[in-house]
Amino acid sequence: MSVSVQEADFDVGAEITALSAGRAEVGAVASFVGLVRNAGHGNAVAAMTLEHYPGMTESALAEIVVEAQGRWPLQGVRVIHRYGRLLPGERIVFVGVASAHRGAAFAACEFIMDYLKTRAPFWKLEETPEGAHWVDARESDDAAASRWEESWEAIDQRR
């Protein structure tokens, strides 16, 4: 398990390869890459600046990964989140998950992204022709994260 919060870009291919390197028990690697869009909420976006809370951001991401490892049998997890000023098309976030089977890999990857969106302290400032503005949190992100809480309860009930 490895978490990085960094300004630098990352190599998606190398990260995916590393998740299964030397681990013959890995049968599935699922990954997600988040990119800066050129439009948000009807505005043209010229650039986006990501602010974070050094220290807490890393520990919040690590905690999300530990929670994922408690829910699914995972052989490897890699999370990279960038900060600083990024242009449309640039990569923001990478989540890669290795497991024996695809079900766990897909689910854990989506779970980590959903929790990251609502629990990791990052904030986006969008630059548009009308000026810079902070992106508002979306209720749909809270809803996406909370569906995992429901399923966690369902898991508990089955125990």
Binding site: Y53, I92, K117, R119, P121, F122, K124, D136, A137, R138
Partner: peptide, 10 residues
Amino acid sequence: VAFFPPVTGG
């Protein structure tokens, strides 16, 4: 202690 708006990463 830290105060901040709802988070918007990812």
